[in-house]
Nucleic acid binder design. Structure first.
Lengths: 325, 325
DNA sequence: ATAGGGTATGAAATGCATTTCAGGTCAAGA
DNA sequence: TCTTGACCTGAAATGCATTTCATACCCTAT
C-alpha cells in the first residue's frame, strides 16, 4: 500500500505539498496539485487514518457504553446519538458491556489510550468514583443522574416521572398500584422505588412486595408478569411499567385472559416508543432520542471546546394520555 | 500525557525494555520490570493505541454497515456479531447508513484507510461492483447472497425460504396469498418475489398487486397493512410477512377488528424473533444471531489468516410451526 | 530603490510504540 | 578451555501524515 512519501516521489514534489493537496491547503500551484492528484490515482492511494489520529491526537470517534444493543430503550437512545454523530462526521464505537465491570473498564481505557475522543455512558455497573478519574482523558457523559460526581450528565428526573404517573393513577381512584422495573439496584430504579414508597405513604397504603416486579425488559417479561398477576388472589388495579415493551406484553397477555384494560387493570408505560402509539398505550415520554442526540452534542462540544467542567442537563418528561388508564 | 520515552527515563531503562514489560515479553529482569511498572504507575501512563495501530497495521476493530440500528432485524444480527467480537476482543464501529450510498462509501473507505480491519455489511444500497475493489484492503463480508461477486457472504436462501412458507400455506388449502416485504428492490425482496410469482403460477393463481405490500419494517407498518386489508373487498386468506414485528402488528390490528387468526387470515412471519414466541406466531427462523456470529467469525478468520479468497456460507432456515396458520 | 506581503515549496521535527539487530553476560555441556 | 545457548539490554529503524520553519520568488506600495 502506497504512502505519502511514494506519492511525493511519483508526483515529483515534497511530502509537504502532497499533504497540502490532501488537506486542501492554499498555496499549491495548479500544476503540482494535478500531478499529485494523478499520482494518488495511479497508485490508488488513501491516507492511513492511524497516522493521522496519532499526530492529531484525536480520532473523531466517540465510544458508547451500553449493556445491551438489542433492547428498545438503548436502541432508541443509540439512534439519537448516532443521528447527531452523523451530522458531526463522527464515528461510534460500541461497547456492549452486559453490565460487566471489566468490559466497562475496557471502554474507559479506550478513552485513556486515545482510541476514542469521548465516551457516552448509557448505563453502567461501575461506581461513579471509578469512572471519575477518566474524565481527565476526555469528556465522559452519562445518560443518567450523576449526582455529585464530577461527570457530565443528561438525565430525566425519574422520581418526578414516576410520581407524576402515580398521581395520575390516584386521581383516577387507583389505590392498589404495582410497578415493573428493570434492575433492582440501578439509580433509576431506586429513584422510582422511592417515588413509589412515598406516594403510597401519602395515601396510607402499605407497600406490597408481590406487586413490585423487577427484571422486566421485554415483551416476554411483560407476558410473565401478566401470568403472575393471574395467579394472585388480590391484584393491583393499576400498574406503572418502566418500559413500553413490557407494558404491551402485560396488556396482550392480560386481555387474552379476560382482564380488561383499563377497566380491570390500568397500565402506564414509559419511553413513548413507537409501539406505545400502536397499542394506544398511555405512557410517559422520556425523550430518549432527544437524550441521545443531546448527549452527543454535549460531548462533541466538550471535545472541540476542550472544556472539561462537567455539564449537567435535565430533560423534561411528559405524560401522553392514551387509552390504557 | 506521558509517553513511553518518559517512562523509560523515569525507570532508568530503554524504551525497548518498557515495551517488553508492556507486552509481557520474556527476558526482562525482575528488578527492571518492577522499576518500569512503578514508573507507569507514578506517571499514570497508558499506551497510545493510535501509535500501536499505526505500527502494527491493524486496529482490532471491525466495521458494521447497516441501514438502521433501531430495527429488530439488524439489532438481532448485530447482537450476534457483537457476541463473537467480544470473544475475540474486537471492537465494533457502527456505520448507520440509512441506505445512503455516500455513507456506505465512508465505511468502505475506513477499510482502505486502515481504520478498521474488516467490514461486515448487513445490508447495502451500493452495487457489488462498487464494493468489490475494497476487498483488497481487507476482508469484506455481506450478510446476504453476493452472487458471482468476489465478496464473502453468509446468507440464507430467501427464494427457498419463501417457497417453503408458500407451500406450507398451500398445503393447508390457501390459494389467495399475499405478502409483506421491506425494500422493493433489494436482492432479498427480489428473490422472495420470484418465489412468490413462481409458486402462484404453480397453482394457476394470478398475481395481485394489491396483495403485495412493501416498506414493511415495524409493528406500526403491520397495523397499516391490516387497515388496508380491512378496506378490501376481496382479501387474501394468508399472508407471508418478512418480519415478525410486522406480522404481530397485522395480527393485533386484524384481531381487534374481528378478523380471526388463523381462521380468516393465516400469517407466517420471518426471523423467529422473541416477539414471535410471545404471540405464538408461526414463523421461519432465519437464524439471524447465528448469521451475525458466523459473519464475525469468518471475517476474523480472514483477518488473522490473511486469506483473501471470498468465502460463501449458506445457512439453513427452518419453519417454526405455531398457531397462526 | 526598498520594505512588505502574497504565493509557493520543501527539509526536518513531531506524535508514539514496536521490532529488528547487535552486543553483551553467564552458566552448562563438550 | 571452548562452544553454545539462554538470558538481558538498548540503539536505531520503522510505520505515516502533519506542521513548523526556512527559503525564495514576484509584485506592489512607499
Amino acid at each position: 500500500m502506497a504512502n505519502i512519501r511514494q506519492i511525493a516521489k511519483e508526483a515529483g514534489v515534497s511530502v509537504t505539498t502532497v499533504s497540502r493537496v490532501l488537506n486542501n491547503h492554499a498555496y499549491v500551484s495548479e500544476e503540482k496539485r494535478k500531478a499529485v492528484l494523478e499520482a494518488i490515482n495511479r497508485l490508488n492511494y488513501s491516507r492511513n487514518l492511524n497516522a493521522i489520529h496519532l499526530i492529531k491526537g484525536k480520532t473523531n470517534i466517540v465510544g458508547v457504553m451500553l449493556p445491551y444493543i438489542n433492547h428498545a430503550y438503548f436502541a432508541r437512545l443509540l439512534e439519537g446519538i448516532a443521528s447527531e454523530a452523523l451530522r458531526s462526521n463522527y464515528q461510534l464505537i460500541l461497547f456492549q458491556t452486559d453490565y460487566n465491570p471489566e468490559e466497562e473498564m475496557k471502554a474507559l481505557n479506550m478513552l485513556k489510550m486515545k482510541q476514542i475522543d469521548g465516551l457516552i455512558i448509557c448505563s453502567k455497573a461501575l461506581e461513579w468514583g471509578q469512572i471519575e478519574p477518566f474524565t481527565e482523558d476526555g469528556p465522559v457523559l452519562a445518560c443518567e443522574d450523576t449526582g455529585d460526581a464530577a461527570i457530565s450528565s443528561i438525565y430525566i428526573d425519574h422520581y418526578a416521572g414516576f410520581q407524576q404517573g402515580l398521581f395520575y393513577l390516584m386521581e383516577r381512584g387507583h389505590r392498589h398500584i404495582g410497578y415493573c422495573l428493570g434492575r433492582v439496584n440501578s439509580n433509576n430504579s431506586q429513584a422510582r422505588r422511592n417515588a413509589y414508597v412515598d406516594a403510597l405513604a401519602f395515601i396510607d397504603e402499605v407497600v406490597r412486595e408481590e406487586w413490585m416486579f423487577y427484571q422486566c425488559y421485554s415483551i416476554e417479561d411483560g407476558v410473565k408478569v401478566a401470568n403472575k398477576l393471574l395467579t394472585m388472589k388480590e391484584r393491583p388495579t393499576a400498574l406503572l411499567v418502566a418500559s413500553d415493551q413490557v407494558a404491551v406484553g402485560i396488556m396482550m397477555e392480560a386481555e387474552k385472559n379476560g382482564i380488561r384494560i383499563p377497566e380491570d387493570l390500568a397500565i402506564i408505560g414509559f419511553d413513548n416508543q413507537p409501539i406505545a402509539e400502536v397499542f394506544d398505550l398511555t405512557t410517559i415520554d422520556n425523550q430518549l432520542f432527544e437524550m441521545g442526540s443531546s448527549a452527543f452534542r454535549i460531548v462533541h462540544n466538550q471535545i472541540t471546546k476542550k472544556k472539561r467542567e462537567p455539564q449537567k442537563c435535565k430533560l423534561e418528561f411528559r405524560l401522553i394520555e392514551r387509552s390504557t388508564v
